[in-house]
Structures are given as C-alpha cells and as structure tokens.
Design a protein around this nucleic acid. Structure first.
Lengths: 205, 205
DNA sequence: CAAAAAATTGACGCCACGTCATAATTGTGC
DNA sequence: GCACAATTATGACGTGGCGTCAATTTTTTG
C-alpha cells in the first residue's frame, strides 16, 4: 500500500509518542503563561490536549518535571548560541557582549506569549536540569579560557560565572519589564560592567 | 490576683494571637528546611503546631503567604543592616563592601538550620513583599546617592541595582555551597567586581 | 491474520484544600 | 462574681486534584 508514506522517523508508535510529548509541552507552556505556574495543575495541562489524564503520567511524573523539560529544552536551544558567541568572538570583549546579547534576545523570544507576568510563569524552585548545568559550564569554560589566555585577570572563576549568570538573570528580567525591551542597551550594560569589573575583582592566589 | 502579671503587651487575646502566628512561622521554617518548600503542605506545617487545621487559615491564606511572611521578616531584619552599612561608610568602596558583607553574613545565619539543600527551601520566584521591595529601594537609593555625589559614574541605576542583587544572590548561593563559607572573600569579590565594573558600564545620557 | 506488545483510557481510592457551623475562650457591662 | 457579647479555635465536610491500574484499544511482530 502506498497510502501514507511520509512523516519523519519511524513507526507510528514513535511518531505519536513524540507528538503526544510535544502536545503536552505546548499545552503546559500555554497554561503556565496564562494562569501562572503555581496555579496550574496537571489536569489543566492535560485538558488542553486530547489525551486522557492517565496518559500524562506515561510522559512525565509531575508538573515539575514538565517544567524541567521546558527549561531543559530552552537550555538546549540556548547552549549553541552561547557556544557560537564564544567561537565567533575575536576578543574577550566581543565574547561577553555577544553572550549577553544572545541571552537577552533569547529571553525576549521565549516570553513572547501573552499572559501572566513573567515572574509567575516560573516555578518556585530552582531547576538544575542537565542542560541548565551544561549552560553554566559553557559560561564557566568561556571565562576559564579567557583567563588562561591572559585576556582576563585570574579571579575566582566560579564566583565570576555565578555573578555573570546573576547579572544576566536580574538585568534580563528588568529589561523585560521595560517596553519595548532594548536588548542592545542591556547587553552593553552587562558586558561593560563585567568587563571592567574583572579588573577590580580580587586576584586568586 | 497577683498570680501572673507578666508577658508583654496586653490582653490574652493579643498574646495568643502573636504566639500562634509565631508558632506557625517557626513550624513553616522547619518544614521548608526539612522537606523542601515544594513538597511541604499546609497540613505538614500545621501538624507541627498544636493548632487545628482550620486555625491556620485565620492567620494565612496559603503556604505561599506563609513564605512571604518569612521573607518579609527576613527583609525587615536585613534592611537596617543595609542602611547602617550606608550610613557608616566613609566612601563608596566601603559602602559596597559593607553591604555585600552584611548580606552574606545574613544568609549564612538564615540558613543555619539543618535540612534539605538551600535551593529547595525557597521558591524561586521573586517574592515581592513590601519589605523586599523596600530592600531593593534601599539598594537603589544607596547607588543613586553615590552617583549624585559623583562617587560613581552616571549609569542606569535600575540595571545597576538589579545587577548588584543578582550578584549577591548567585555569589551568595555559591558561597553557601562551599564549606566553610568565606564571607569576607565573597564580599571582596562582589564589591571589587561592582566597584570597578561601574567604570565600564555605559554612561547614561 | 492472529497473537504479543505497547500505549491509552477513565474510574477509583486517597489526601490536601479551604470553608463553616459549632464550641470554647476571652472581654465587657452590671 | 455573673451573664452576655465578641472573638477565636476546632475539626468534620464537600470539592477537586493526585497518581494508579485493570480494562481496552492500537500497533507491531511473526
């Protein structure tokens, strides 16, 4: 039978599994944006799909795990952008600017859905999924490399990475509150702060 | 009768109300530390007290509101320390160092309870209680004042305050993960970064 | 095409939620 | 001291989400 010979990967099993998973994630994203993460229930999410309540648990163990999957996806999409910023940069300055710019662009895109305020869309717990940790390590590597090459002073790289992430998060959220968000200005601010700040941070050993 | 002529404020009504509220807050603090914020339920909290479940709702509307009260208390205790750091400082450098040092000392104290990892004890959303906002404003005022007096360059004070808070949060958490936490080192790092970084941040107008 | 394997379904028992009528406690006027 | 009003505590109750699981449907295998 030459009826249906398309779709992407393999058997129907695989395809519907991917489709269901994607449907749940899409529904969750919408529900979190519209009613806020805390207020949302697994039932709210599954009701937005055509699936039965029990099916949800074939894919995720809880609402938290759905959020982690969303966060993980986000981190997975963001990581190559960060990597690219590092590889394309001709100087440490350029790297920092590129990295912050990439992040700020990313969160503007990622919060494009209409709905509740940004703060309420997120869970009440820090999500440290593998991909999120990978992003931290990418940041850390970039900074380590710069220090090793003498492009940046020898400072506590762990603290520095944490500081960069903290700056990105807070300045990023502040930027989102302004309208329209000025990505370039925020990136210039953050990069300028860190770049010069490096000189002021205590040398390590 | 001269039986009991003590306690603090007024009638018995007032006293037990304060005691109950305090009991709930103490129980909540312990429960959050031991089982994590997410996993905790209102029932878990109230079971730790001698009160009935309904009584909880005479004092708080939800678990979230209890957390807010705890955060608010923390902010209320911290604010004067921050203020003192500003007033006692003879220079902008001193102010920054003092402020970061105060914050890092504060969180070390505040997380002294045994239990689950720091990250799980709290919600990750910004809890923007009045007192928390007041802390942001105190930070903001300190920076505004320094800029006005020419002790710091004219930069976007909102972004700068956000950046300082982000640095404090992330570097603070990183510090707590190390044992023993070196408050002075963390404060020196954060203050050094911001102080010098200020020179690199874009001037505003 | 039949049997096996896998995934979906929705009803079920459980428990936390927030409410509310009732009871207990405290303050007030005499 | 006592009776009455006001306030607060209590815990049983209805509601609804949670996660499970036996039954059913769908897909794959041989």
């Amino acid at each position: 039978m030459s009826e249906a010979a398309l779709a992407e990967p393999a058997g129907k099993r695989e395809r519907t599994k991917l489709a269901n998973r994607a449907a749940i994630l899409a529904a969750a994203r919408a529900v979190f944006a519209q009613m806020g993460y805390e207020a949302a229930s697994v039932r709210d999410i599954i009701r937005r799909t055509e699936l039965a309540s029990g099916t949800f648990y074939n894919y995720f163990r809880s609402k938290e795990e759905v959020f982690e999957a969303l966060a993980d996806d986000g981190a997975r999409r963001f990581k190559p952008l960060l990597r690219a910023a590092r590889e394309n940069a001709k100087s440490f300055t350029e790297y920092l600017k590129g990295a912050f710019h990439a992040y700020f662009s990313f969160i503007v895109e990622d919060n494009a859905l209409e709905g509740r305020p940004i703060e309420e869309r997120r869970p009440h717990v820090r999500v440290d999924t593998p991909e999120m940790i990978a992003v931290y390590q990418e940041v850390r590597q970039g900074l380590d490399a710069a220090i090793a090459k003498g492009m940046a002073p020898k400072v506590d790289a762990d603290y520095l990475a944490c500081a960069c992430i903290g700056i990105a998060q807070e300045v990023g959220t502040a930027m989102l509150r302004r309208s329209p968000p000025d990505i370039a200005a925020a990136a210039a601010f953050a990069a300028g702060l860190v770049l010069k700040g490096l000189e002021g941070a205590p040398r390590k050993d």
